[in-house]
Design a protein around this nucleic acid. Structure first.
Lengths: 228, 228, 228, 228
DNA sequence: AATGAATGAGTTTTCATTCAT
DNA sequence: TATGAATGAAAACTCATTCAT
């Protein structure tokens, strides 16, 4: 009854070729590609992978739809690339995050604030992450070089906790991974579920003030939770 | 070009009518409807609204596709009904949750554990909630009788916090809503993002043991955070 | 611009229904499927697999294009089915061909005439066969139950040759398979290449008279070739 | 867009020289054109006109796709040129075929062998011819100077038959055109349908030995058929 | 002569939904 | 209540061709 849909000649045209572009040769070099990537990110974040429309991505980028296929091969490859970029971006940000402050509380505050502020400012990231999880992370797994991505962060967090414990400002016996997930979760859930939470509690949570209140609460909560 | 393909509340024909079935008339009374509802819930949770297929829902329920339309009108109405059911379900559970324990710490523990365990045991709920948020909660808003749904819970939580503060076991000045969101978020993020977190940290978090560790951490974290 | 279906030829189901209606079952039972199959056969024969248009097949069948996918899954599966049918058809015809005439010359004449006349009357078969060969028979190989298809025919031909040799009317030492291929080839090439041959020799070969001349020549040639 | 029939025709080489970093070397002279023509022939033969891809032709020739349009105008013109070349080629070969041997049997043998061997060695020709026929020879008709192409051959064959009849080695009353078609058909069908025949009879016919057997059979058959 | 970027016009395929029984 | 057949609208994707350099 069902049709065996064979992609058959899938091909990964364009995408590969376009990646090795040399700047300077053409003035519009990479422009349409960049525009498309940005539009794709937005569309995928807004509607999810299935809900996103290639047509709409092209329209938003202001270019012809076929360029999507020319540059990225197909919808799924484009999605994967967006995912990869989004992760690379946050990784870069994290890398530039100075957690080596001699004061462990200061370092911790910086981490918690960064985590919250990044999510607040990059709702696309939240949405993409979430949609990817609905699909069981299938596509993310196909993105290379991700495993060692956050490990340094966890390590840094472990050192902060250790230094804090030594200094007597943090309690001991905490798993850095769990703490990291908690820090992330306290902000993530708020932004991810901001619409249903608003609906259920009859209180629009998306305002500047409300977000500020949440931010304060998260910082406060974490610090109290880490006290010895 | 907006793709609002389905004129929102097109009609709630048939569906509503069918709900009030008279018992005793047919042996399979309500069966196909129930089967469809369960199948729909699973399919929507697994693939999101856009990714879900009406065909697949019917197939999973083992009935003819047309019955979907017969019982529920259309895909969106079915989705809304699933959403409503899912919320009604957790509301029921919460209602039966006894938070009136004279010991505020006991009551709090009960709430935190319930929150975590419910999410752990109802991944469908997590997924549906998340997908609904991707769509900005549009559909949830159309579900009636939801606003006052969780207010009692927030109230109860407020009382627990108050009693705990009075008893000197919790600190004061905490916004019950923020606390509630934190409790939920600490578990929700873990389950919602379990696939990407597993991929990124190279550690499968979906095992019984790992979930247990997370549960302990969440309880521990909350209690430390609430200490005076 | 798609096939704006004019109400005029929207469907002539009335006539069709009257033709194949069986009381008790569904009126249009299998009708659209049959119509599509016939249209597909024609379209594939006329344009080759790649040149054929699903749109056109549906238009010719007088049904909605999506029925193609409903009934056959996709273009390639439909093609495969057409191929299978075409082979089944000739197999049936061959099966009913009585080659057991005690007179081996009579039997041989029957075979040669049948072979030529079948190709003359089923240009679709010629075209489909040829297109399939351009694609290296890839699809035909996927059609089940084809290997033992013509073996009986070769066997029968072998017996005719043997009986003829015994009776002194045919020479000996002939490989039945080669003879079969020759018989088929003498007609096939003519019909397959009728257009280019006409162009090259400036003589339209597609007329009734020309075909008759070719037929006579083939029979004559084969009989002379088989003489002792 | 007119095409040049002379393969070695010189064209402007300024830009070309600029590209090949060594001004003065004309090694690439006309190369891309020739490469494209060869690639096109192969691609058209392998996939048919509709199945052939301009992209693939350029890729196989190792040049930019736009050169196809630069040199040949468009896909169809390129196809026509390939067709023309292919015919010119066989015409050249036939022209060099010495059929004036005083011994008519010798001349006939030469013709039959040439016909078979040419098809055996130029499968591209077989495929192109066949595809062209699927399209009813439309394009071939547009190729100039083809009508009188084979007439000399038919004439020569007529003379061979006449001399043979006179010498008592061939029978009389044979139409040279029919004989020619038979000679061609006996080989053509074998090569054209080699894949489906192999599939149907479960015997791979593409081996050196099998082809040799077919060759012997064809010669044998023709000579027996021509006997008085 | 040569190229990479871009595009218009299809083409297959998908999918929610309705029809007729 | 239940079903198989059919369909409209749109989706992803393809491909020959042109543009600008």
């Amino acid at each position: 009854m069902e049709n065996t849909r064979t992609p058959a000649r899938k091909r990964q045209t364009g995408a590969q070729r376009a990646r090795t572009s040399r700047p300077g040769t053409r003035k519009a070099e990479g422009t349409s590609r960049t525009l498309l990537l940005a539009a794709a990110r937005r569309e995928f974040a807004r509607r999810g992978y299935e809900g996103a429309r290639v047509d709409e991505i092209a329209r938003r980028a202001g270019v012809n739809k076929q360029l999507v296929y020319h540059h990225f091969g197909n919808k799924e490859d484009l999605y994967r690339l967006v995912l990869e970029n989004v992760y690379t971006e946050i990784r870069e940000k994290e890398r530039h995050l100075d957690l080596s402050d001699p004061d462990p509380e200061q370092a911790m505050r910086r981490l918690v604030e960064f985590s919250f502020d990044y999510l607040a400012g990059n709702r696309d990231f939240v949405a993409l992450l979430t949609d990817e999880n609905i699909h069981k992370g299938r596509r993310l797994k196909q993105v290379a070089n991700l495993q060692p991505l956050h490990s340094p962060l966890i390590e840094a967090l472990g050192q902060i906790l250790a230094r804090g414990a030594e200094a007597g400002v943090f309690r001991t016996g905490l798993d850095p991974l769990q703490v990291y997930i908690s820090i992330a979760g306290l902000g993530f859930f708020y932004f991810n579920n901001i619409h249903t939470l608003s609906a259920i509690f009859g209180r629009k949570l998306d305002g500047r003030e409300e977000i500020g209140a949440r931010r304060a609460h998260v910082i406060d909560l974490m610090f109290h939770a880490l006290r010895p």
